[in-house]
């Protein structure tokens, strides 16, 4: 079973993404910001990160930069999920180390497809 870490400060967004990804067969953990996500990623191996942009203490971009530059963390693909849909937001996500960019709110089918695609899980 593939493990996903959902990083979002909004409780209902985490619950929503958890429901979608659990139904799609993933084991799901949650973090409320980038610092907590790094703590988790240092202690457990994840196959995918689903990352919000705006979070207190450590935003999604910085989380990705720190994740990508940390040799002690298992490097897995990351989907950035954002309310912002402009080109510059996408560019910032790529630059920070995201592998995919989706706008909020996500649709269950789309998130599931992307999660399978990035983790190499055949559907």
């Amino acid at each position: 079973m593939k493990h996903v870490l959902i990083i979002d400060d909004a409780t209902t967004v985490r619950m929503y993404h958890r429901q979608i990804l659990s139904e799609a067969g993933f084991a799901v953990d949650e973090s409320i910001n980038g610092v907590e996500a790094l703590e988790k990623a240092l202690t457990k191996r994840y196959d995918l990160f689903v990352v919000d942009v705006n979070m207190p203490k450590m935003d999604g971009y910085r989380f990705l930069r720190e994740l990508r530059s940390n040799a002690d963390v298992h490097q897995a693909p990351a989907v950035m999920v954002s309310t912002e849909a402009e080109a510059k937001d996408r560019d910032a996500a790529w630059a920070a180390g995201a592998n995919y960019y989706m706008t909020k709110p996500t649709k269950p089918g789309a998130l599931t497809r992307v999660a399978h695609l990035l983790t190499g899980e055949a559907q």
Binding site: S31, I32, N33, G34, V35, E39, L42, K57, M58, D72
Partner: peptide
């Protein structure tokens, strides 16, 4: 406790199972 509620000034390090 976790620094995640507090600050992002510090680097998170893991030694064994200790953060």
């Amino acid at each position: 406790e976790s620094m995640s509620r507090i600050s992002s000034l510090f680097k998170v390090r893991r030694f064994g199972s200790t953060i």
